[in-house]
Amino acid sequence: MMDNWARVWTPANWERLLVGDLFNRGEIGGLALTLCIGLLAIAGSTVIGAVVGIMRASDRKALNLPATLYVQSFRNVPLLILVFWAYFLPPVFGIQTSKFLSVLVALTLFTGAYIAEIVQGGIRSVAAANLEAARVLGLTPRQIQFWVVLPQAFFNMLPALAGRYVVSMKNTSLAFLIGLMDLTEIGKQIGARLMTSPVEVYLTILLIYFVVNRGLVMCLRLLENRQSFNRLFLRI
């Protein structure tokens, strides 16, 4: 039993898991690649989700309709299928793409659809009575949106947002299915070479994902403290 762990947890294996095989030649892989895809997708999908979510919460048809269409179509298709689309469709139109880009684009658009729903829910969660209080003080609609609605919406949606970010980080693991050398693929290769200790190998990979995701959640928890949120985002 301990033997197995010792065979999995060698310095060489750890190096491969963390940065990949070709790190010396400037190609990142392993956990580094996973984090790279994950964090870029999180950033991109947050921007998309914010814009689309605000459009979704609008009463105007011209904004609402395209946003709804986007959200509904991307939410009902498996991410893996989107990855295949992102990989095979651009060449048809003569656009160069790469495995890395297709995973990133698919993951960003997919997560963006979910974040849009969270943003919309957050905006709707701000009590109408609260807006009335702001109007009575003579604030303009734009000031109300910026100082009363959006900060409250953002604060209310932090837990849901953290959940989505974690899902997004987990979803980077699909990269290995189209042949990228991410954490999952490296782990799989190590498992294939060692043959006799799959339990240890896969538990190790799962553990790495677990630590990364819990870390991500902890960081976002810091924001959920109203005091620090207030200091960070509300310079009134």
């Binding site: 974690v166 987990k170 693991s173 699909l174 290995f176 999952t184 498992g191 799959p198 190998v201 896969y202």
Partner: peptide
Amino acid sequence: RNTPPVVQLLFWYFS
């Protein structure tokens, strides 16, 4: 909740 489903799949399959 905090680990990828596809890795869990591989785990169950191989081990």
